[in-house]
């Protein structure tokens, strides 16, 4: 095993949770084994009822150097936040 095995990211949906959450990563020969190891490592204590594994290399991630261009413009647009608006008389939820 000279080359390291592919890295996989593991997502678990807990009993009460609606969405899968990222819980960690592991190495495995392929997706089938990754699923088995995800079960061994991340769900042995009743943490979940559903598992996703995905090759880490298949995730398209935003880049650190793009952060300013990507996220900062939202800073000066407070009107996109619900809290920007005064709650009109008589409205309980917005």
């Amino acid at each position: 095993m000279s080359e390291p095995m592919p890295l996989f990211e593991v997502f678990v949906r807990s009993k009460r949770g609606l969405e899968h959450r990222h819980v960690g990563s592991l190495r495995a020969q392929d997706a089938e084994m990754a699923m088995q190891y995800a079960r061994e490592i991340y769900t042995r204590r009743q943490e979940g009822v559903s598992l996703w594994v995905v090759r880490s290399g298949d995730i398209v991630a935003s880049q650190e150097e793009d952060a300013a261009a990507f996220f900062d413009p939202a800073d000066d647009k407070p009107y996109r936040q619900a809290t920007y608006y005064d709650l009109p008389e008589g409205v309980k939820n917005l």
């Binding site: 190495r27 088995q36 061994e40």
Partner: peptide, 8 residues
Amino acid sequence: PFLEEDLA
């Protein structure tokens, strides 16, 4: 042979 299998 590797950590994941060790746990398994």
